[in-house]
Design a protein around this nucleic acid. Structure first.
Length: 475
RNA sequence: GUCCCCAUCGUCUAGUGGUCAGGACGCCAGCCUUUCAAGCUGGUAACGCGGGUUCGAUUCCCGCUGGGGACGCCA
């Protein structure tokens, strides 16, 4: 039997990283098995579902390259089919009408809680004769759960899990307005879509027992379940807004690369021995949902950043240029053709020092910002009067330098420092300040090569004449 | 409260009835060095507790503790 899986988010918000990991595991399992990976938008709660959220989900999945193999299924469009199933179950006596009002149910629950009894529907309508109820009184349709025995699920991640059927609620299938509930819709859709493996967060584990009984009532095969543990915040609690960014698109804004995010997420609960860096091909080749651990993992930004730094270094310079340019423009920096060329030439040195695209764009300023460059406070302090004269004298040498390459520049600068009776470091930092406006940058001679002679001389001239404005921010 | 799930360094994890309990991130130190990174070297740090089973348990079983989840006419 060919594997068919689905990712089934409800469009009530952005795609968060927990959902992204669920999607990734589904996708990986499908790819590994040569199966199909589908997307279903669970928008049966029309009030809370939004177009924006649906777009955010598509966008997030696209960014992570986890788009489905077929157009998405919108659950709301299938309400008639869901209703039809409920009606059939009703006719077959596997479901029944319940006339309890929401107030009545709330009171029942409150009393149960107060008396420290299990909070559950007491099935008071289960045997009720419809004729004994006024015909116009609204009713819901509930599933008649077995009251004895137990339900056992062989979960690919959780192992064998069982629950006494007495614990199962007679869940609502159709609301009093006739619309289907999530419980009904998921089961009907998963069946109709031919889903063979339901891979989702383990917050659905208890739902699985009830859904199992619904499959049985419908007299259809039950799919294989795999409930993966949720991702927790650094404090161990359920991931929430107070833990910072949740939406995958926020990570994109932060300058995280999709491949870094995927690598990070897949290692949460799944591993391949000691391997930390995994290509998509390796993940697909080795991934098995059965190998996913059962304990929840905590989100660790440092690890994500470290992975991101790695993948940043792996990306081609031209690729990074393409990603950084829009960020520079958004920051109000107009990059001309010369700046573009410099940035591309300097990218190799820049990317080695950045953990995110945001940091990369920030560091890129040294190659694209217009003269005179602003000075950070630390840089400004290095450029005292004596040093400005030294730099001007150095510029005098550089004008006549035969070859403008790293070796020539290095020997010229070192020789000059020696003449001044300075350690090279004493000259290097002020020179760096003059050339970049900061105290942190790629290697000096690399920077000089990337900038080119004219720009280097001009920047030194700026510093010598004290033309650079000050900035508050510092590296 | 009821039910379900979980438990190896701070974090992500590997692992076995007998291991110096391994790797990665972080942190610390050193090397390199014109700064910062990168790289290299070294270091720090864990089997939650109590009972069993066993010649021997981190590993198997039970309990406890701790953590998480579910108990909606939400999904």
């Amino acid at each position: 039997m060919s594997v068919v899986v689905r990712f089934a988010p409800s469009p009530t918000g952005y795609l968060h990283i927990g959902g992204a990991r669920t999607a990734l595991f589904n996708w990986l399992y499908a790819r590994h098995c040569g199966g199909r990976y589908l997307l279903r938008i669970e928008d049966t709660d029309r009030a809370r579902s939004t177009e924006a959220a649906i777009r955010a989900i598509f966008e997030g999945l696209e960014w992570l390259e986890l788009s489905p193999d077929a157009p998405p299924v919108f659950q709301s469009a299938r309400a008639d089919r869901h209703r039809e199933v409920a009606e059939r179950l009703l006719a077959e006596g596997r479901a029944y009408r319940c006339w309890c009002t929401p107030e009545e149910l709330e009171e029942m629950r409150a009393r149960a809680r107060a008396e420290k009894r299990p909070v559950r529907y007491d099935r008071r309508c289960r045997g009720r004769d419809p004729a004994s109820v006024p015909p116009d009184r609204p009713s819901v349709v509930r599933l008649a759960m077995p009251t004895e025995g137990e339900t056992v699920i062989e979960d690919l991640v959780q192992g064998t899990v069982r629950i006494a059927n007495a614990q199962l609620d007679d869940m609502i299938l159709l609301r009093s307005d006739g619309t289907p509930t999530y419980m009904l819709s998921v089961v009907v859709d998963d069946h109709d879509m031919g889903i063979t493996h339901v891979i989702r967060g383990d917050d659905h584990l208890t739902n699985a027992f009830r859904q199992y009984q619904l499959y049985r009532a419908m007299a259809v095969d039950v799919p294989t379940f795999a409930h993966i543990p949720l991702i927790h915040g650094p404090d161990g609690a359920k991931l929430s807004k107070r833990h910072g960014a949740l939406s995958v698109t926020e990570y994109r804004e932060m300058g995280i690369l999709p491949e870094a995010m995927r690598n990070y997420l897949v290692r949460l609960g799944w591993s391949l021995g000691d391997r930390e860096i995994l290509s998509t091909e390796e993940m697909i080749r080795h991934f098995d949902i059965r190998d996913v651990g059962r304990s929840p993992a905590r989100f660790d930004m440092n690890k994500l950043l470290s992975l991101n730094a790695h993948y940043l270094r792996e990306r081609a310079d031209t690729e990074l240029l393409r990603l950084v340019l829009p960020r520079l423009e958004a920051a109000g920096i107009r990059v001309d053709e010369a700046g573009r060329r410099r940035l591309e030439a300097g990218m190799a040195g820049l990317k080695l020092r950045a953990r995110t695209l945001v940091e990369l764009a920030e560091a890129a300023r040294i190659y694209v910002a217009p003269r005179p460059l602003p000075l950070t406070p630390k840089a400004a302090r290095l450029l005292d009067d004596a040093m400005r004269k030294n730099l001007e004298a150095l510029a005098g040498r550089l004008v006549h330098l035969q070859r403008w390459d790293e070796e020539s520049l290095e020997s010229a600068c070192r020789a000059f420092a020696e003449e001044l009776g300075l350690g090279f470091g004493k000259l290097a930092q002020p020179l760096r300040a003059a050339l970049t406006g900061t105290t942190v940058s790629p290697g000096l001679f690399e920077v000089m090569c990337v900038l080119g002679r004219d720009e280097v001389l001009a920047r030194i001239e700026d510093a010598a004449r004290g033309r650079n404005p000050a900035v508050q921010q510092s590296h």
